[in-house]
Design a binder for these strands. Structure first.
Lengths: 233, 233
DNA sequence: ACCTGAACACCGTTCAAGT
DNA sequence: ACCTGAACACCGTTCAAGT
């Protein structure tokens, strides 16, 4: 039992770029547009083909399947992330800027939420970011496996915090909800839990955007403090 | 523009349970089996219908659509989570046990990864867990909005850490990969990043399960320490 | 009150056939 | 080397019709 090799776009040679016809870049760019405009369900091979005035199945010449295409689009978004050089700004500042940048990019491309737990991130852009993160936490003083643990904890926080935010935006903002109706209904759901009700009584639904941002900073501070504490003991 | 009301299974009255025919519980149970056995793509209304020796469309009598069914299955899994009473064991112990319990349940139902960022969690079981978590962090000393921030940070960490673990399991274990081939291929992907290569040179792929568990505890300790630090300042 | 089958409007992917 | 259309095996959901 040799097992089948793990497969990913990045581990295969791309079609060599010849001049005529379509190109992989063109296809990925169009896919990104479709994803940003219509979300994860808005991207189908047929629609993408149509957008490029091609048959849906022509795309399979450039890309093995839809997942490969998503991997390419995925990595593209990693390219937009700012990771300052920790040597220049210090590790805490570098980590903080990175965290906010990842959050912003995720909020700008909500369809990323559907890919994060599903596709490997082995593309060059994702690698670049991962490498910089490692440097950041090494500079902080972590060594050996602890560098990985620190990076994992840090990114886990960012993902875990931003994912529900995306979900919220999707159901609330896009769903053009009625704030008061929503509030009443959540109260009903929380009816048996006095502690939950108490919370809802606060002005929770006032300005969710600001709330979310404040919460993010609060948690980020906590996580960085907690990681720093590992260094002194 | 009044906006459409936010909708969720929990906010509608269920069909009243009459004796004959199928029941919502029966359907949800069958759906859970299908999800656990075949994953998120294994659940289709047609397959589920067949499993219950019914026409696929019969299910629409009990459930408005597939998402509602998923919401019900989703909440069912929250029922399996252990949340100790913080008054009895102390807030740090309660938080720690809860974190490990959530991770275990997620690993046992990997399809949860696809729902976490997508569906609201307003079911009774999810509410129970959320309520207990709030109590835990209130006991720790948080007040007002900070209770929410602390809970959000805590759960963000758990989700963010476990999600990639599920993804890893899905591609690696289920894909019955060849460890050495995998290793070589990731090296190729990381070729331009000396820092990444250095990491791969360590015995990273030795026993991922243990590594993951250690990493989880490391991060959990950090997050709880970081949150605790918010209380003293 | 509950269940059905047919039908609609979609999917991703394969493949033989074209240029 | 690149593109095509037809075809296969699926989807979720609606709805008129049955009992």
């Amino acid at each position: 039992m040799t097992g089948k090799a793990y497969s990913s776009v990045w581990l295969r040679e791309p079609r060599k770029a010849t001049s005529p016809g379509r190109s992989r870049e063109e296809i990925v760019r169009a896919a990104l547009e479709l994803l940003d405009e219509e979300g994860i369900d808005g991207l189908s091979m047929r629609k993408l083909g149509a957008k490029l005035s091609a048959g849906a199945t022509s795309l399979y010449w450039y890309v093995a399947n839809k997942d490969e295409l998503l991997e390419l689009a995925y990595d593209e978004t990693w390219g937009a992330i700012t990771v300052p050089d920790p040597e220049e700004v210090g590790w805490r500042e570098a980590a903080s800027v990175t965290a906010h940048s990842v959050r912003q990019v995720m909020l700008r491309h909500p369809w990323l939420a559907h890919l994060l737990g599903r596709l490997p991130a082995l593309g060059p852009n994702a690698m670049r970011v991962a490498d910089r993160m490692r440097q950041t936490f090494k500079l902080a003083g972590f060594t050996g496996y602890e560098v990985d643990y620190a990076v994992a904890t840090f990114t886990a926080y960012i993902y875990g915090m931003t994912l529900p935010e995306i979900a919220w935006n999707a159901t609330m903002v896009d769903g053009e909800y009625d704030a008061d109706a929503m509030r009443a209904q959540v109260m009903k759901a929380a009816a048996d839990f006095p502690d939950m009700l108490e919370r809802i009584d606060m002005d929770t639904y006032e300005d969710p955007r600001v709330m979310r941002a404040v919460a993010f900073d609060f948690g980020l501070l906590s996580v960085l403090d907690g990681l720093e504490r590992r260094l002194v003991t």
